[in-house]
Write a protein that binds this DNA or RNA. Structure first.
Lengths: 134, 134
DNA sequence: ATGGGAATTTACGTTGACGTAACTCAGACG
DNA sequence: CGTCTGAGTTACGTCAACGTAAATTCCCAT
């Protein structure tokens, strides 16, 4: 299976369009845990799954720290239920934050659209006078 | 008219809920141009109008640099319609960015909710076994 | 004159997510 | 054996948008 292949740092960089620095940085921040064979890092299927989630999280505007916490939720097996419950709390908190953020964003979008109707009219009228002047 | 009153830095801070540091910072970044009477800054109606736009811009997620450019174009007023059109373009771009961001956010919210249903069941079942064990 | 309370300037600190040297080290190749 | 390539480590640099501290200056009331 090419699925559980092990990848070098370069293969990872090419596959996910990130720099080596970024991968090492993520490792330092305990977001990834590549195998350390001697000096080299070897990235497993698990690292790839985590990296995908990291990148997606970033697109959503999460901080790396928030992402780290969410990642812990993902690969929690049969841990202590207090831990699990705690993580669940965090996720809930994060969810309501996101919903609030979405609502603000929607409001901002509406406001901006409103603003733009202004400029639209302005442009139209200026276009008119420009045509008239020709 | 209290409309074209001149305001001190403190009055501005109170009126717009910003710190003096912020106002000086905006001046340094050439977003505001208060009159310098001796040492003191005096903010005119124009500065207030600009500040309002700055704060609104920030809510829309523009960077200060983007805002500065928009303000400059805005200032050109009805001079060049090309500038106005450019402003409109920028706003449109930002709008679609925001909408894309909102959509991604919504998707992320759904996904996170999905994840959480997982943890919910898990918590419930663990609670069961805990009760049973007592 | 003196103290108090603003406002000012200068300049270093902060946070997050890496970028960018600079230097070392380990294999691979000819 | 020398060199080239790729990977590694260490550590300082960057960018945004201010915060914060220190030292100074100003006007005004007591």
């Amino acid at each position: 299976m090419t699925d559980d292949r092990i990848m070098t740092i370069r293969e990872m960089c090419d596959a996910y369009d990130v720099t080596p620095r970024t991968l090492r940085f993520y490792e330092a921040k305990e977001l990834l845990f590549p195998i350390r064979e001697g000096q080299k890092r070897l990235f497993t299927k698990r690292d790839r799954a985590r990296l995908k989630l990291i990148l997606r999280g970033k697109r959503f505007g999460f901080s790396l720290e928030e992402i780290r916490q969410l990642l812990d939720l993902y690969d929690m097996g049969d841990q202590q239920q207090t831990q699990l419950a705690r993580t669940y709390e965090i996720a809930q908190q994060r969810l309501s934050d996101m919903e609030a953020q979405r609502d603000e964003l929607n409001q901002a979008i509406d406001e901006l659209k409103e603003q733009m109707r202004w400029g639209e009219k302005m442009l139209a009228s200026m276009d008119q006078s420009k045509r008239a002047a020709e």
